[in-house]
Design a protein around this nucleic acid. Structure first.
Length: 354
DNA sequence: AATGTGCACAACCGCCACGGC
DNA sequence: TGCCGTGGCGGTTGTGCACAT
């Protein structure tokens, strides 16, 4: 699709732009198996024509299993507003307080509508004599924001747009928060304590068990998130032998359905049979992989004729696993892997790819 | 129905911090 | 102690889509 500005990887001939489902699957499979001790080396070892930075971002912002997809709840939005008042544009710190949310996601939500809402509130606070009708207007916009994204964006953003982005006052210009001098905030500051002062919703949110947070975008470390992986292990693995034609398929992705047996480019779906055979303790990873596949358009009826357009307009393959996975470690992994290896134990599940 | 407009999202860039040598 | 490599963060941007006209 080619979103974003000019890619940094063009000069080295790497893939750029939006990720294909195949690339996603490959990245997920690799990280699940080996972790991501070295992002720079990861793409090569995983057989991805991407730069390490791109892989890291893709993983953190989109593929991580602990990500919470969907609209932000009212509590989350309130938390973001409050935290932003405390911390400013410290998106990673804010994200660390919102389980399953990424800094990028929070940043987007803030820039799209929370910023406007916050500024509206600010204006009202500066004008104590604000009429009740105006309060009501803001309340409705709040309510709108909580509704499904499509309607939320249209109603609340158009009006607020006038005082927000169009004025050129980008929050991104390292604007210091109004309420708290950020320079006084030490990195070790207990954000939870700050939030617990007078905010009930936030308190409730924070009272909830925080994720182990090893996988939160701000404190993501390989060993904590996936498990320790030695360099030797990383260098040894995986033996993903990628045919040149596979790369051509990936590079020129978007054409006809890839023939069965074409190899890596056709990472197949996990079968429902696999899902059914998972043990109870493996439900988490299984659920995640299944949902990932659904999102990627790789999950569906096991009919070869059902190669279907993917979310990006490319053709995804939904054929039977057994016809596709021969010799492809990644495919093999998704045939039996996730269900057999919950994420925290991935590094130890050496049998998955073998 | 066609066109215009604005928003949401995902991706990239540049800079900075940190750790190893 | 300085240099280099890597990871992480924040800001920015282009495209697709939904809604309005």
């Amino acid at each position: 699709m080619g979103r974003g500005r000019a890619p940094c990887c063009a000069k080295v001939g790497l893939n750029r732009g939006s990720w294909t489902p195949q690339e996603d699957m490959r990245l997920v499979a690799y990280i699940q198996k080996h972790g991501h001790a070295n992002w720079r080396a990861l793409p090569k070892q995983a057989g991805l024509l991407r730069c390490g930075k791109s892989c890291r971002l893709r993983w953190i912002n989109y593929l991580r299993p602990d990500l919470k997809r969907g609209n932000f709840t009212a509590e989350e939005e309130e938390t973001i507003i409050k935290l932003h008042g405390l911390l400013g544009n410290k998106w990673s710190k804010i994200a660390s307080c919102l389980p399953g949310r990424t800094d990028n996601e929070i940043k987007n939500v803030w820039n799209t509508h929370l910023k406007k809402r916050a500024s509206q509130r600010e204006q009202q606070q500066q004008k104590p004599g604000a009429t009740k009708s105006k309060d009501k207007a803001v309340d409705t916009s709040d309510a709108d924001t909580h509704s499904p994204s499509s309607s939320a964006s249209s109603s609340s953003t158009t009006t607020a747009n006038n005082n927000g982005s169009s004025s050129g006052e980008q929050c991104g210009t390292s604007r210091e928060p109004e309420t708290v001098d950020v320079s006084l905030l030490e990195p070790e500051i207990d954000i939870a304590d700050m939030l617990l002062v007078d905010d009930a919703p936030t308190e409730a949110l924070l009272a909830a068990p925080m994720p182990p947070s090893p996988c939160s975008s701000s404190s993501l470390t390989t060993t904590a998130c996936i498990g320790a992986v030695s360099d030797d292990e990383l260098l040894d693995l995986p033996e993903i032998d990628i045919e040149p034609e596979i790369w051509s398929i990936i590079d020129g992705y978007g054409g006809a359905p890839v023939a069965a047996g074409a190899g890596d480019a056709t990472v197949p779906c996990t079968t429902t049979a696999n899902a059914a055979s998972a043990s109870p303790g493996e439900e988490g990873a299984e659920w995640w992989v299944e949902n990932l596949e659904k999102e990627l358009g790789l999950w569906g009826p096991m009919d070869e004729s059902l190669a279907h357009p993917g979310p990006l307009g490319q053709v995804c393959y939904a054929g039977p696993l057994t016809e596709l996975t021969d010799g492809d470690p990644v495919s093999t992994y998704f045939q039996s892997g996730p269900t057999a290896s919950p994420l925290p134990e991935i590094a130890s599940s050496s049998a998955v790819l073998s």
